[in-house]
């Protein structure tokens, strides 16, 4: 009765029992590359959320991170279909090429896509030049997102944010609990250990889930390259009409973008490093027309990808303030 037996690992196969695979010692060392390891982790997160929440949704922003997230979701549920809806919060000021790409790709993959706009604010002429970027984002992005999540009754929303993007994001959990108003309290984050996620919520609470938390910008580009993932053509360099202000290249797709006296559009070889609203997302001068060229450019870059976003550096720590208010 008191004999202590260890596990079966070291024993001979049970005589006559079903044939056994080759002994583990005979196999080569098994190791995943960093992209395979990241992929496996992200797929695990997708499956866990879909199993433990009633009504998840994926925030689809049309950018490169969303494209990767979409591919990972396809992989997570293959050979089944993606078992949740996609939500695009359309500010009304996204680049035209983004919208074209969104509609074409959604149809090609048979995605269940919801597009939400704050029509009321748009009808009143909300734009960043009239209201300032901060107020404009609050109305067209944050409020619009919170309204859409409430209307859809979603209890979990996947987002493509990465921890390497910005300092306050470096401390974000993979499951980020939001109060009934969608707000984030950095001091009340749940400890997150191993791959065990706590999916318990109080009524009215919801979570944001970030399956790409551990991916870097370089990982995203390498994955897009290796997997042949379609992305919006704005990421590739070509001659585009731009207003040139010092280092900034500003699109004039929206007519309300004011010209300085005597200012004219110039044709500049350029591309977008990250995508957002056309008036607030600057282009960068570039000749990178292929993925390897983009990656090569990235390696030589010494500027972070969000630098061309006007919203992040309104003030020091501005992203954290937006997140506390409910911004993704």
């Amino acid at each position: 009765m008191s004999t202590v037996l260890s596990s079966y690992a070291a024993t001979q196969p049970f005589p006559g029992v079903l044939p056994r695979a080759a002994a583990p010692s005979a196999t080569p060392r098994r190791r995943l590359t960093h992209l395979q390891a990241l992929e496996a982790e992200s797929i695990h997160i997708f499956r866990e959320v879909v199993s433990e929440f009633q009504n998840p949704v994926m925030l689809y922003s049309i950018g490169k991170d969303s494209s990767v997230m979409l591919r990972l979701a396809q992989k997570a549920f293959y050979p089944g279909k993606i078992p949740f809806k996609l939500l695009h919060v359309d500010t009304g000021y996204k680049f035209r090429e983004m919208i074209e790409f969104r509609d074409r790709y959604a149809q090609e993959l048979g995605l269940d896509l919801i597009v939400h706009r704050n029509e009321e604010a748009l009808a009143e002429g909300a734009n960043p030049y009239k209201l300032g970027t901060s107020r404009c984002c609050e109305l067209l992005k944050t409020k619009s997102l919170l309204d859409a999540l409430r209307e859809g009754g979603f209890d979990a929303a996947f987002g493509g944010a990465r921890r390497d993007e910005e300092r306050s994001r470096a401390k974000e959990r993979i499951y980020s609990v939001r109060d009934p108003r969608g707000q984030w309290d950095p001091k009340q984050q749940r400890p997150e250990l191993w791959n065990l996620f706590n999916s318990r919520l109080a009524p009215g609470e919801s979570i944001r889930v970030f399956p790409l938390s551990n991916w870097t910008e370089m990982d995203i580009w390498q994955y897009i390259h290796e997997e042949n993932i379609p992305i919006v053509p704005l990421y590739f360099a070509k001659p585009r009409p731009m207003l040139v202000r010092g280092n900034q290249l500003i699109s004039t797709e929206q007519e309300f973008v004011p010209r300085l006296p005597g200012e004219k559009e110039q044709t500049v070889m350029c591309r977008m490093r990250s995508l957002g609203c056309s008036p607030c997302t600057g282009a960068i001068r570039s000749t990178a027309t292929t993925l390897p060229a983009i990656i090569e450019e990235l390696v030589s870059f010494r500027r972070s990808e969000r630098e061309n976003r006007v919203i992040d550096h309104d003030q020091d720590g501005s992203m954290e303030l937006k997140k506390r208010q409910g911004y993704f």
């Binding site: 921890r163 300092r167 401390k171 950095p186 938390s213």
Partner: peptide, 19 residues
């Protein structure tokens, strides 16, 4: 040191991931 609260205190108060 990412968050406002800790920059005000000059110390780190939450786990942060770096790459």
């Amino acid at each position: 040191d990412g968050l406002r609260a800790e920059r005000e205190q000059g110390i780190t108060i939450d786990v942060a991931y770096r790459y």
